[in-house]
Write a protein that binds this DNA or RNA. Sequence first.
DNA 1: CTGTTAGCGCTTTCAA
DNA 2: TTGAAAGCGCTAACAG
Lengths: 335, 335
Amino acid sequence: MANHVTMADVAREAGVSLMTVSRVVNNKGEVSEATRKRILEVIEKLGYRPSGIARSLATSRTGIIGLIVPDISNPFFADLAKGMEYVAYSESYNVFLCSTEENPQRELRALQSMAEYRVDGVILCSSRLDEKHLVDSLGFFYSAVLVNRGLESEAPSVGMVMVDDVHGGRIATHHLIDEGRKKVAFLAGPETSHSGRRRFKGYKDALNETGLPYASDLVVHCDSNVEGGYRAAKALLSSHPEVEAIFCYNDLVAVGALRACSEIGVSVPDDVSIVGFDDIMLAGLVTPSLTTCRIQREEVGKRAAEMLLEQMGGCSGKCETAVFTPELVVRNSAP
Amino acid sequence: MANHVTMADVAREAGVSLMTVSRVVNNKGEVSEATRKRILEVIEKLGYRPSGIARSLATSRTGIIGLIVPDISNPFFADLAKGMEYVAYSESYNVFLCSTEENPQRELRALQSMAEYRVDGVILCSSRLDEKHLVDSLGFFYSAVLVNRGLESEAPSVGMVMVDDVHGGRIATHHLIDEGRKKVAFLAGPETSHSGRRRFKGYKDALNETGLPYASDLVVHCDSNVEGGYRAAKALLSSHPEVEAIFCYNDLVAVGALRACSEIGVSVPDDVSIVGFDDIMLAGLVTPSLTTCRIQREEVGKRAAEMLLEQMGGCSGKCETAVFTPELVVRNSAP
DNA sequence: CTGTTAGCGCTTTCAA
DNA sequence: TTGAAAGCGCTAACAG
């Protein structure tokens, strides 16, 4: 059962004014020890809980940071969230997390409801929205940080934490080519993914730099999970058995590709070598273990939170950008 | 930049009263087409967003459901959250997710902040709180559903969704014993875990039923993740090399045990066989693949949300309990 | 040290 | 079909 005890009830019961109770509740201003103690007792006795809603309305501060991710069951985002929450909690903010199932509609709705709820700031990860919707939505927040999603237009007080996906795509693809593989495919993840596009650019750059031809039918979009990678790899390998290597959008997709290979009797890394992206825990656990591009996910999350807190703290003008560089982790799927 | 456009601004600009704007915003009550259109235009032009805070204060409804889990990076809870959110969103509730890092203090804080924010209902998963703190905290909510955590005392309007862990522990342990293993250890997970205690009961029941002796030094607590399982298994196997089988608190722990075995040259399942719990995706992906007890996680999440919505809907008295029965999935780690 | 007076932005009566 | 008044529970800014 919920409580309907209000501050007024406490004040009446304790025989003081609202303000005195408020001071005690917020540890603000001078209150004599005697009354403080009495009020505390009444609060306890009545089971009073202050209303965050009312307080927020009065102060126009919620103490809440919104965090929006495409899919919380992707360890990449779960780890990011962990880093971000760590910082937020240590500054006594609470975190309002929404997972949008890779669905731009849901993303829009999450953004909207956070705007309506007047969160103090929002961290938006790997947004799948187009530039216009994104900029419009961001306009409703005092401060915001974008993770892994650039902005073409100038947006005021929007921080950015980026991963150098182009670089990641390059080194991953180069690694495959250095092994002597000529036919390198790319399982590109969701079409809406901006990091996917940048990884694709890195992939193409590497092909160019080594004089290998680019073949658009070796690039296949897929869902950003094991199932998506499995399906895409199966289709790809059956229509293009000449493929010698696959660069995957992320580790989940790569694990799916691994399964597909094992199922159709293609040996990894002998017949086909595979590189993933992210270096989630799973990457080191599958057989063969996955060569991948490591991203310091918790650090990315922490940095995003710090940036947001700085922004909320004051100087709202500055629009910082932090960049994390992925590094290649060589394991057995592409030695 | 945030907006400070209020309903009053819209009313003034449109030359109508507050109420008329409110009616348009909420699609409630009769408003002439002409004024409705005009108001909508002004809203668009001014970039007005209603304040959820103010609305909640006036209506004492937030449209938010709180979800608290010990660790969102555990796929078990991520999947649960997915199922739960699916139902919540389809009823146009928003979900406020908090991950407590297995820390009872943080759990208490999450509960408290959700109570202060007057969420319409809360779903609390695998609570690590003791009975008293738990019952006290629950008292602040209109409605609540507990997942995977029983309550000894009677609590009004608290629904429960349980997994039959005792059964799971029994069948897992029996499976190991049926293979001919006599020395069966249990990696028990966190001491604070209630499902761990129930799985332990199942484990002991199975030993009893087959006349095997129970040895307390074959039961080791550990963190609920791969690292925890790895460490515990390593310690266990070095002090008790006679162990022939390990039942693990969950799949993450089991995967850690798998790694430990492989590292110290113990073959699974030849020397030691291993059974996990949950059947997360990872279970089918590691080598050897994991025998485990499957829990229909998304279904559990959905059921919890449905139960909460029913409770919020009306008849606050009834205190339902749903039980899900885990089933054994036999793979290679314990054939 | 304590209390009073105004709101915060919205919705809920009730009236026009 | 529209509006005015009151209040949701709290805090800011002054008084005393």
